[in-house]
Every structure is written in structure tokens, then in C-alpha cells.
């Protein structure tokens, strides 16, 4: 099953490599990975999506917790949460398809953030499946470049992950 593990860790040099190293060292998958500083500059927030059965996920969370740089973590998939992935797509947009691409982008609540005579750059946010669906709706061969941030997520309601 796919899980979203959200980690609060020390903003120390090498901390990220310990997390990434742990996944490769122990043979766990990383599907997406996102890391950035938080409102507290001494902490960074890392979100990783992975797949595995309960046993593997339990080991992953325990192993992550054991890393000295990891302060706290939560498996967001255990509760209700909001998840978002940001995508920038460059598509070939010429002639009559330009209108169609505009329409589809609207349906997906995306924005065209850059326009060229032959290309559009579209920005989309949402859950990963939504972005996948958008890509699937593009005409074959029209996608020139895709950049995704990887999943970020946060619990719904009062629950917070902080010190």
C-alpha cells in the first residue's frame, strides 16, 4: 500500500543523505521525495511516499525514527490528510489544439503560466492521481517536459507535527 511519511528533522548538513541512504541501504522504495525548510529554520520537513506492506512500513518508520537527526514523524496515510503534488508541464500547443488544451487545463483547475507560439507551460496542483489524469488527457506525443514536486501533505484538523 502507498504511504505518505512526513518527517520533521534537524536542518543539519547530511541529514537528508541519512534518510535517503536508509531507504537504499535497506531496500525500501522511494516513490517521491520532497524536502524544504519550515517556519523554524533549525528544522526541515521531508515528505516521502513509499509502498510496502504493514510490516515494511512499520520497519521504515522505526528505522527513520532511529536516525539521530529525525525529530518526529507521522504516517499521514493513517489519518485524514490533505495531499498535494505540484506539476509543471510543457506541452506542444499549436493551432487548433491550443483551445482544447486551455479547456482541459481549466477542467483540471490548472493555470497556463507561460505561453509560446508553439508551447504552453501549465501549472497544476492536486493529489497525485489528478495530475496523472491530466497527463493522460494530453494527446500522445504532445508532452515535452514534466516536472513534479513530489507529494507534500498535512493532517486535517487540529493535529500538527511540531516540536
Amino acid at each position: 500500500m502507498r504511504r505518505i511519511i512526513s518527517i520533521l528533522m534537524e536542518n543539519e548538513p547530511g541529514a537528508l543523505s541519512r534518510v535517503v541512504g536508509l531507504f537504499s541501504q535497506r531496500g525500501y522504495n522511494i516513490d517521491t521525495l520532497n524536502v524544504a525548510a519550515t517556519e523554524d529554520p533549525t528544522l526541515s520537513r521531508l515528505t516521502v511516499t513509499t509502498v510496502g506492506d504493514d510490516r515494511v512500513i512499520e520497519q521504515i518508520t522505526k528505522q527513520l525514527n532511529k536516525l539521530v537527526d529525525v525529530v518526529k514523524l507521522v504516517d499521514l496515510s493513517e489519518g485524514t490528510h490533505v495531499e498535494r503534488d505540484l506539476m509543471l508541464v510543457k506541452v506542444r500547443a499549436e493551432g487548433s489544439v491550443r483551445d482544447e488544451i486551455r479547456r482541459i487545463t481549466e477542467i483540471f483547475r490548472g493555470q497556463i503560466v507561460d505561453v509560446g507560439p508553439q508551447v504552453f507551460t501549465i501549472q497544476l496542483t492536486g493529489a497525485a492521481e489528478k495530475l496523472d489524469a491530466f497527463l493522460a488527457s494530453m494527446e500522445e506525443g504532445s508532452i515535452l517536459e514534466v516536472v513534479r514536486s513530489g507529494v507534500v501533505g498535512i493532517s486535517r484538523g487540529e493535529k500538527v507535527l511540531r516540536l
Partner: peptide, 12 residues
């Protein structure tokens, strides 16, 4: 980097 998988922790 070389010692990372075989240490409890490390510092530079």
C-alpha cells in the same frame, strides 16, 4: 558518506 551506513551517527 563512506561510513554513513555503518555508524550510529556522525558529525563533521
Amino acid at each position: 558518506g563512506i561510513s554513513r551506513p555503518v555508524v550510529k551517527h556522525s558529525f563533521q
